[in-house]
């Protein structure tokens, strides 16, 4: 049964090599992101951030991982053992799957610089991105703790609320490109990046992206002051580390998607083989915005979160889609 149409396909061994490379690349980036975030937040607060482990604190993530790996992976008596164990894996799983469709470049020397180019790219992203919600919900529920459960309930509500706006925000770009394939969308931006015509869509996507990745100011599910880390409360050791890993993974994916849809994807001056560098640079720029926003804005109240999602973002996104549709049709 054919699930999706693939635009360009190589030999299987090439696909395997590509997937390993992408997997490694992203997994190399995550530790850098963690230390970068901590150092940046430090700078935003006139501090140094971590600077004790290794040169200027660069080995901090290694130390964190060693520490987390060295801890006992305990499980509360009230927890559901199997679900409790697979929930973090599920979250990582969904993050990694979405990596497959991010286009790091066009076809160079007969090799597409992406995992896979599917004709339903956007749907694929939403389909697998939403799986992480199961991870959160299962983690919270299977912990057998009120705090965890409340955190996961919040994240469920939050993900549902913002996923619609997020989809609608991308719809404008999809309509303009006339394709769901991500490579096609990138190629459609060779004249002007969609951030210009679709600025509203971009902003809505970014806002919804904060919410989707559970980051400040929408980090209600883990709100440490009230829920003591929400769904993560009962986790320890490397399982807890998996949640952290997934958070940064998702952040990277969301930023890469935003780059692809609004910032011209891999396009940039220089030879073709530089295109992955461009994509990563643009993505990192967006990640910087994520961190910047985290250092600036306080956490929203739950009702503010809901009213923002339903009363502002959703109508705005709908309006954006309508206007875009009209303009695309008219022009």
């Amino acid at each position: 049964m054919l699930l999706a149409e693939v635009g360009f396909a190589e030999a299987t061994w090439v696909l395997i090599v590509k997937s390993v490379l992408i997997f490694l690349l992203v997994f190399m980036i995550v530790p850098v992101l963690t230390v970068t975030e901590r150092k940046l937040i430090g700078r935003f607060q006139n501090r140094h951030g971590p600077n004790r482990v290794g040169p200027v604190g660069l080995l901090q993530p290694l130390a964190d991982i060693v520490k987390l790996a060295g801890k006992e992976m305990f499980r509360p008596t009230g927890a559901v053992p199997l679900l409790f164990a697979i929930a973090p894996a599920l979250i990582i799983f969904s993050g990694i799957l979405t990596l497959a469709i991010i286009p790091f470049g066009n076809v160079v020397d007969g090799v597409g610089l992406y995992g896979i180019d599917v004709s339903i790219g956007v749907l694929y992203f939403f389909a697998f991105g939403s799986l992480s919600f199961y991870g959160l919900l299962l983690a919270g529920w299977s912990s057998g703790s009120k705090y965890s459960f409340l955190g996961s309930m919040r994240s469920a509500a939050q993900l549902i609320s913002y996923e619609i706006s997020m989809g609608l925000a991308l719809l404008g770009a999809v309509m303009m490109a006339g394709s769901l394939s991500l490579t096609a969308i990138v190629e459609a931006q060779d004249e002007v990046w969609y951030i210009v015509p679709q600025i509203v869509g971009f902003l809505i996507f970014m806002l919804a992206g904060f919410a989707e990745t559970n980051r400040a100011p929408f980090d209600l599910p883990e709100a440490d002051a009230e829920l003591v880390q929400g769904y993560q409360t009962e986790y320890g050791g490397m399982r807890f580390g998996s949640f952290l890993l997934a958070e940064y993974l998702e952040m990277f994916v969301v930023c890469a998607i935003a780059t692809t849809f609004f910032l011209g994807g891999w396009t940039g001056p220089g030879p073709d083989w530089l295109s992955p560098v461009w994509l990563i640079l643009k993505t990192l720029a967006l990640i910087f915005v994520f961190i910047w926003v985290r250092a600036t804005l306080p956490r929203l109240r739950y009702d503010q979160l809901m009213s923002l999602g339903w009363k502002i973002l959703l109508p705005l996104a709908t309006l954006n889609v309508l206007v875009t549709a009209i303009l695309v049709t008219v022009l």
């Binding site: 430090g42 700078r43 935003f44 006139n46 501090r47 140094h48 910047w292 600036t296």
Partner: peptide, 26 residues
């Protein structure tokens, strides 16, 4: 309200960014 919130957010972002320029005081 939306416009004011957006403006205030930008103001906040400017404030925090200015801290990077200042450099650490630790």
């Amino acid at each position: 309200g939306v416009a004011r919130t957006f403006g205030a957010t930008l103001k906040g972002l400017r404030t925090t960014f200015a801290r990077i320029v200042e450099g650490p005081v630790t």
